[in-house]
Simulated scan of single mutants.
Amino acid sequence: MKILLAGLCGAVVTLAGSGTASAAARAAGPTFQLPFPCGETWAGSSNSYAHTGSEIDFNWGAGDADLGKTVVAAAAGTVVTAAYQTSNGYGNLVKIRHSDGSTTLYAHLNSLSVSSGASVAQGQKIGTVGKSSAKYSIVSHLHYEQRSPSGAIVRASFNGSTFNYPNQSVTSRNCGGGTAPTTTTQPAPSGSNPYSATQVCGPGYKQIDSAPLGSQGRVVLMYSSATGQNCVTTLRASGSGKVNASAYLEVQGKARQTDSGSYQYYAGPVRAKAAATCVKWGGSIGSAKYDSPFGHCG
């Protein structure tokens, strides 16, 4: 059985307004953005037979062209689920709860970049597009849902306007304007990076090493004793514009995992279990680069 996704060739159109009532209902909640990096255009469809009406399957290209593409948080919030699901068919799922109690779901992911309990910013990478599912045989795509505080699936909105069901191509305006929930009331200095390594990797991670990248920033190695995972993130000193940045983690005897791209504040997080195993880690910002030897073998 293979699910065929419809509506993948629609032209980019201007999003229609959702009406006064729905706009008022959303006023107290976050302004959701497309769950993909700024400037990317994705085709969405609600036509799958497995949908109840308001879910959206997003595709960037035909077949498995989407596999491994970055998925980001549609709004700031707290991760309540980051795990593989079986009977419901979601596969690798991230579920984020937002400030008004609403939630967003990102399903069939190829990989997860966040853990349960982590605070995430709007536009922060949370995983990659995939086709994981224990229930369905599917082509690579992102299954996306917006849910009300009661848990009901609602018609999705992006950048303040309702998705034009059943099919629409949408260009992302998820350009890093949101901030992650924080326990401090002190604002970040103007131009400085508002994110810490703990915010990026999530609660429970403690810093065990770091290395400077000139005046550009630093790369940080974290560890969670609860999960046995290491986490690496590269943090810029300033958030002025975007630069090429990367973060990597290599567990001895296994393939290196890397996150790289054009980022405003940080690269990563990159996570891997490495209990009683040596790790090599590092990252870069522009031309500044750090590569560790294998170490931290406990």
Rank of each mutant, 00 (worst) to 15 (best):
L93D: 02
M222K: 05
V220D: 07
Q264S: 09
E40M: 14
S115K: 14
F158R: 07
P269W: 11
V219Q: 07
Q252E: 15
A275C: 11
Q216E: 05
A245F: 02
Y223Q: 11
R97M: 13
V270I: 05
G268S: 09
Y266I: 00
A62S: 15
S119Y: 08
D259W: 00
A197E: 13
N164W: 11
V251K: 11
V154Q: 03
R218K: 15
P166K: 03
G68H: 10
H143I: 02
A288G: 00
F163H: 14
T41C: 04
A83C: 10
K273V: 15
K254E: 07
W42I: 01
A247L: 02
G53C: 07
A134N: 12
C9L: 07
G68E: 09
P37I: 11
F294I: 02
R155K: 14
A118W: 03
S116V: 15
S99T: 11
A272Y: 06
G261R: 03
T70L: 02
S262L: 12
S150M: 01
S99G: 10
W42Q: 08
R97V: 08
A23G: 01
N159S: 15
I153F: 05
N59A: 10
S102W: 02
N47E: 15
Y144P: 03
P194S: 06
Y106V: 02
V154T: 02
A276T: 13
P30N: 10
T183P: 03
G130Y: 12
